[in-house]
Amino acid sequence: MNTDLIIPGRYLDNYDMSSLAQHAMEDIDPCFATNVKEGDVIVAGRNFGCGSSREQAPLVLKELGVAAIVAESFARIFYRNAINVGLPVVVCADASRLEDGDTVEIDLVAGSLRSSGGLVAEFPPLPSKLLEILEKGGLVNALKERLRPCRPDTGQ
């Protein structure tokens, strides 16, 4: 699953995420944007998100309500981008054992995953610095706090 399939380059002159998100995955599944629901988890194989550095790829998935992506492996820029926009990504060698319709419970801090279909898996949790970015909903929020004390007092 590459970035161009997640969001094709021909739409990237549009910086409005809610309208851009309507094109997510359309080249392989024209109904994806309509069918995906808040809290859905994407399950994938190897090298999820390979290709471009376009941050719009995780952004449109987050915009559509995707709660997490569980994959056998991720391409590195997508992985970083997902964390930075506050979309949890979980590396799970047994991802293929998850079935459509399963309910998945993920504990990012403990590094564990349980599915209603009976899959129990463990994964190395993210370093605390990165977990913190996810907890805050992304790097923008995390940096907002860090940059605030450095700014001059504009009030007086």
């Binding site: 941050e55 981008n81 790097l139 940096l143």
Partner: peptide
């Protein structure tokens, strides 16, 4: 290569 938010950082 990095993403847009990282570049902003």
């Amino acid at each position: 290569g990095i993403g847009a938010t990282e570049m902003a950082a």
